[in-house]
Amino acid sequence: MTDVSAFIVQTLLYLAPGIVVTLSLVIVSILLGLLMGVPMAVGQVYGPKPLRALIGVYVWIFRGLPNLVLLFLFFFGIFPILGITDDPFVVAATVLGLRSGAYQSQIFRGAIQSIGEGQMTAARSLGMSTPQAIRHIILPQALRIALPGWSNEYPILLTDSAVCYAIGVAEILAKSYQLVSRTAEPMAIFLIAAVIYILLNYGGMRLFAQIEKKISIPGFGKGAL
């Protein structure tokens, strides 16, 4: 028994930095995606036609390419050419973030479009400019409506992050692989890795449920929409 628990503890200790890297990667890319997704959604709903088309093309490209293709393209191509950095973590966070931004923009766009036209009309009738109305009336509602769907970005990014091992990000899977090559215990180690992913997933789910509860408003965004 002690052998087994010692093995588990050792494995966990070895993987711990990988867990930190994975979580950092997910958090940075989800925030980058949020920073891009909200303005893109606003642009797609309220912006001029050329802007809407441009955003549409961006979304189409980033949703249409496999993660690994984007990672290789940025790691071996775009970043070296631009001479920005060769840090795989930065490349991975950028790629996951750009891709998540494309997905997130469509979640927020749907939420904005589900808000009745009357909200904007009423805001404008009080003398708010369109940007003021978007900021103070439309977005606070849209973000609440979007939250349940938006929460899915977390498990998606969490699972997607494993691919980043391919460009040398020292995340959970990369660390597991290293350990396997040293100990020749693939089953046990990958199983532990899998359990870690599941627990991280579960933790995130709980966190988002808490946030949803905290910002919920009586009678708002339930069924009526």
Partner: peptide
């Protein structure tokens, strides 16, 4: 110029 609508259009949030 205030305006009052048939469907109120109160800000739901």
């Amino acid at each position: 110029i205030g305006m009052v609508f048939q469907n109120f259009y109160l800000f739901d949030h």
